[in-house]
Design a protein around this nucleic acid. Sequence first.
DNA 1: TATTTTATTGCGAATAAGTTGCAATAATAC
DNA 2: GTATTATTGCAACTTATTCGCAATAAAATA
Lengths: 125, 125
Amino acid sequence: MNRRNTPTKEAILDLLSNSTKALSQDAIERQINIKINRATIYRVLNRFCDDDVVHKIVAEDGKQYFAVCKKCENPQEVIQHHFHFRCLLCDTIECLQVPVEYSFPNGYEVQNANCVLSGVCNDCS
Amino acid sequence: MNRRNTPTKEAILDLLSNSTKALSQDAIERQINIKINRATIYRVLNRFCDDDVVHKIVAEDGKQYFAVCKKCENPQEVIQHHFHFRCLLCDTIECLQVPVEYSFPNGYEVQNANCVLSGVCNDCS
DNA sequence: TATTTTATTGCGAATAAGTTGCAATAATAC
DNA sequence: GTATTATTGCAACTTATTCGCAATAAAATA
Ligand SMILES: [Mn+2]
Ligand SMILES: [Mn+2]
Ligand SMILES: [Zn+2]
Ligand SMILES: [Zn+2]
């Protein structure tokens, strides 16, 4: 399954790259300047996830949000397990450069993390 | 809105109290020994949440899970912000007595947390 | 450049989780 | 016992996401 470059793919990655927030499918469809089918957006996003280009966050609303999340110092490198923040006032979700730390009981093997804190964000406080 | 005691309400709370795992609506419907309507189960669960009797976890699958989560030492008291663990092998979600700790940038006011780590649980490893 | 291969897309339909309106039921207060 | 109204069941609805399939168009090949 070799990947192909398409206008759709580039437009979505462009939008995500220039956004400070994680975006849902409908936010992408609203903000993008070309017409892309709903199913296609999901398929492109899922491919990005498979290729580790973006990562997916599931919020308390049960919806999927997608972000190209990079380290501050080293923008190429993606932080592995970091917190996300959902502002209840401006209704946005952002990646935070705050690592998820925990001391787990033996016998548990942690592979993935989906951590969303919610409240009032920096902009709204 | 005074609350009333009903067989439905008691059966659901009973099931949750005796479960070591967080349960979804369909798991409750499957495991309970009386017939309860889907909408009713959700309404009872949401009332429990409003009354702080149970708490809701949203997992990476976007589904809602409910648990009566208590401290080990002091079973009455509910831990505020703790991690949850989703086992990818046995497909269960459990509350862990592991507090969610973070050092957040100023300006963020954290009110709630929805943190689910996933991997292989103690039973399956 | 022309042809072939197959990844990608759009469309519509399907699935699944959760909610809501409404009338019937039943717990509790009086 | 009667009245009040919280709770329930049912069906319909909403919303998010996925899927099958045929059409399109990148990229590889000749
Ligand atoms: Mn992130
Ligand atoms: Mn819990
Ligand atoms: Zn905000
Ligand atoms: Zn397990």
